[in-house]
Write a protein that binds this DNA or RNA. Structure first.
Length: 776
DNA sequence: GATTAGGCTTCG
């Protein structure tokens, strides 16, 4: 029988093998098999259920008056059926004996004045309980309602006296989210007010962040237990005392009354629910309570505001400042600053940071906030209090203005950061909104900086190349030699745009797979695109070969046509139209031919013999170019493409004017011009991370031929040129080399602003620089 | 076992 209600003093009725244990000698790890603890029930808490559905009942037992233990009371936690049964029969003042208990660390050890251990009691553990009700000690009023909850009285704020410990209710008028104090604890300053319209500023300390009230906004309702009142500067002040405990509630009138607390156990009665709802109603008309925190899209410069957001990236900037990259799903309506940090220093999902780059804002936090910022987990939801949106403009360009976000040092006006839990209603709403945000706009990959993350960059295995003297530069300047060097640190802190001569080392570069550095560039719309795959060209050719050449458009004044049937390939016919000059055919190496129905292989073969090849198809009246995903012209190994956005294609007929020239040159640019094509140029796009010891920056190399002395247009079709490029990069930035041993590069760089939408970013580009001839 | 802060915007 696990519970026995006995009718005499337990000492006389207990099994003889059991020995009584004093709180003084109670500690974890001791064998408690033959021990029992005896005490008087001084309070009990309402019967509750744990998360797993187990019944749970907590009571407090006190040792007898003559106990010599430092603490006289201990928490008893009962589980399962024992909890349920005990809850029905126990009375305040009863004598209780517990045998067969487990001793564990009390979860509320820092919050009450009781023994640091508690006793766990359950049928599973083989516990037995004896209860003795002494009739004379129990009054009628105490037994009236069971179980007995400790009675709390709450002092109105206009009745406070110095030197007392009281229980309070109040609406939060002002608060500082917990911050790390100069002592050993977290500190939170909270000013509350109640219907008496009297304020009380409380200074709350605790080494455990969770033990401080979880206040998220002004207007929240708090309940403080055991707070000490004292006088300071002729005013009442609240301060944490032993056993301080708090509950915090959302202050919205009518919202569910769910307490935020660190302790699992707390008393909470219906009467108190009424108190909270009354305070909510009072606060709604007597307290300046703001609605939801503003979104980035509605942020005005020169303001202090609270931002609710998600952390997507973070980086240390220097000892006294720290970068937080955050977003709230909306786009700031002003251009915002970008804080330059090393990509390797940035913690967070690089792909996500990149995808969200037009929606995130950079927040710099300073001084005392750095320590807390460092500990934040990427992905967590934050409220940043009293964030400063500062209007700024580029030094020499007053019209280029943007917004900076600073969380200044100190805790004035509640400046600080608080992590919001996932179940916070504002977080739930924010998350739902973020999920609905279409990222198509920010995913748009058009700007040069977008090449930062093009796939994975594997390390190539380089051979060791001859070392160049450290004092010399592996690059040379092709102009402006009179300029003085500028340190990178100075450049990073200077206004944009400007040009500089620098001397730095190439710490790393992207892409590491060099063939990925070749792109097609349209100088008209400034777009960059990947070089199409040869297989795609093959498919386009096969597709157009399915339609037989139209005999109507064969042979014209300016070209002569020849048509072949293919063997064993069905109906496929190949037509070649030889462009004439002065009504005569020219030597093949000077001739432009238009080819219809040919395969990729056939066209490759023809391009070895003829100067220019134009793949075409025939319409009813004329010869036409293929889709611009295919090259419009092939010259030897160079394939020329046109811009899909900017070209306004004409039919092949327009070439007749060129053919009539006295000396047709068949220059690709001329051919493109008459065909209405905006030609794309092959370029090297690379990102060089340069470091000169004073600072580091990423500079883009945007080069057709000059830097490497290799034409970008020929690299993809020449293994020789690819090897040469690998060799050069292996000298400029030898893999696995001590930074001290890296060669120097002399370069010109220019700074410029890149805007995508409303966002501005400072970029750097290398120009008028080439690899030294003896390196090549 | 005391201390921390004790609201009232940085100047980056």
């Amino acid at each position: 029988m696990p519970i026995q209600v006995i009718d005499g003093p337990p000492e006389t009725l207990l099994p003889s093998h059991l020995q009584r244990v004093d709180l003084k000698y109670l500690q974890m790890g001791c064998d408690q098999a033959n021990k029992y603890f005896q005490g008087t029930v001084i309070s009990s808490y309402p019967l509750t259920k744990l998360g797993n559905g187990t019944e749970f009942f907590k009571i407090v037992l006190q040792e007898s008056e003559n106990s010599c233990s430092r603490t006289r009371s201990i928490n008893i936690s009962l589980f399962g059926k024992l909890a349920e049964d005990c809850g029905k029969v126990i009375h305040q003042g009863d004598t209780m004996v517990v045998a067969g208990f487990k001793v564990a660390k009390s979860p509320s050890t820092n919050e009450d004045d009781r023994h640091s251990c508690h006793l766990e009691v359950s049928e599973d553990a083989g516990s037995t309980i004896y209860i003795y009700t002494k009739p004379s000690t129990v009054t009628a009023s105490e037994t009236a309602s069971m179980p007995v909850a400790p009675k709390y009285t709450y002092t109105p704020l206009n009745h406070l006296k110095g030197g007392t410990i009281v229980n309070l209710y109040g609406a939060v008028k002002f608060f500082k989210p917990p911050y790390i104090s100069n002592g050993t604890d977290y500190c939170s300053v909270v000013t509350i007010v109640d219907q008496s319209n009297v304020k009380l500023t409380c200074t709350l300390f605790n080494g455990n962040l969770d033990a401080l009230p979880k206040i998220y906004k002004v207007g929240d309702i708090v309940r403080f237990h055991r707070i000490k009142i004292r006088e300071y500067n002729e005013q009442m002040q609240g301060i944490t005392s032993i056993g301080f405990a708090s509950l915090t509630f959302d202050g919205t009138v009518g919202a569910p009354i769910v307490p935020r607390t660190s302790t699992k156990l707390y008393t909470f009665t219906e009467e108190e629910q009424k108190t909270i709802e009354e305070l909510r109603i009072w606060a709604a008309s007597n307290l300046l309570v703001f609605g939801p925190t503003p979104k980035l899209s509605s942020v005005q410069p020169m303001l202090f505001f609270d931002l609710t957001c998600q952390l997507v990236g973070k980086a240390e900037v220097d000892g006294s400042s720290f970068l937080l990259k955050v977003w709230d799903g909306t786009k700031c309506s002003y251009p915002t600053w970008k804080v330059l940090v090393e990509e390797s220093d940035l913690e967070g999902d690089k792909v996500l940071i990149h995808r969200l780059r037009s929606l995130t804002v950079d927040v710099l936090v300073y001084d005392n906030h750095v320590q807390l910022a460092k500990s934040l987990k990427v992905g967590s939801f934050l409220r940043i209090y009293s964030l400063h949106s500062k209007h700024a403009s580029a030094g020499n360009q007053p019209d280029v203005s943007y917004v900076e976000f600073h969380l200044h040092g100190g805790t004035c006006y509640g400046r600080g950061i608080r992590v919001l839990p996932e179940n916070n209603p504002d977080v739930k709403e924010l998350r739902a909104f973020m999920d609905s945000v279409s990222l198509t706009e920010s995913q748009n990959v058009e700007s040069m900086s977008s090449m930062e993350l093009d796939g994975t960059f594997d390390n190539l295995s380089y051979q060791s190349y001859s070392e160049r003297c450290q004092q010399l530069s592996v690059t040379v300047l092709t102009d402006h030699q009179h300029l003085e060097d500028t340190t990178l640190n100075t450049i990073l802190n200077s206004a944009v745009p400007q040009q500089y001569r620098i001397r730095a080392k190439l710490r790393t570069f992207k892409p590491q797979k060099l063939h990925q550095s070749i792109k097609l560039y349209c100088s008209k719309c400034n777009s960059l695109q990947e070089v199409p795959d040869a297989d795609d060209f093959d498919l386009i050719l096969r597709d157009s070969a399915a339609t037989a050449p139209n005999p109507e458009v064969q042979d014209a004044l300016w070209y002569e046509s020849a048509v072949w049937d293919t063997e064993n390939q069905g109906q496929r016919k190949i037509a070649v139209h030889f462009v004439k000059h002065d009504e005569l055919l020219q030597e093949p190496e000077d001739t432009l031919i238009m080819v219809q129905g040919g395969t990729l292989n056939e066209i490759r073969k023809l391009s070895r013999r003829f100067k220019c090849i134009m793949p075409v198809k025939s319409s009813k009246e004329d010869l036409e170019l293929l889709d611009l995903a295919a090259p419009f012209l092939l010259q030897g190994k160079i394939w020329h493409y046109g811009c899909k956005h900017c070209s306004k294609q004409k039919t092949a007929q327009s070439l007749s004017s060129l053919a009539a020239d006295e000396h047709p040159s068949w220059e690709p640019t001329e051919i493109a011009r008459v065909l209405g094509i905006e030609p794309l140029q092959y370029v090297f796009i690379m990102k060089f991370t340069l470091d000169d010891g004073t600072g580091a920056l990423d500079a883009y190399l945007f080069d057709y031929e000059k830097f490497f002395q290799i034409p970008a247009s020929e690299v993809l079709t020449s293994s020789l040129l690819q090897e040469k490029m690998e060799m050069i990069m292996g000298i400029l930035c030898p893999p696995e080399t001590n930074p001290d041993d890296l060669p120097w590069l002399e370069c010109f760089i220019r700074s410029y602003n890149v805007s995508s939408g409303m966002e501005q970013q400072v970029c750097y580009q290398i120009f008028d620089t080439m690899v030294a001839e003896d390196v090549i």
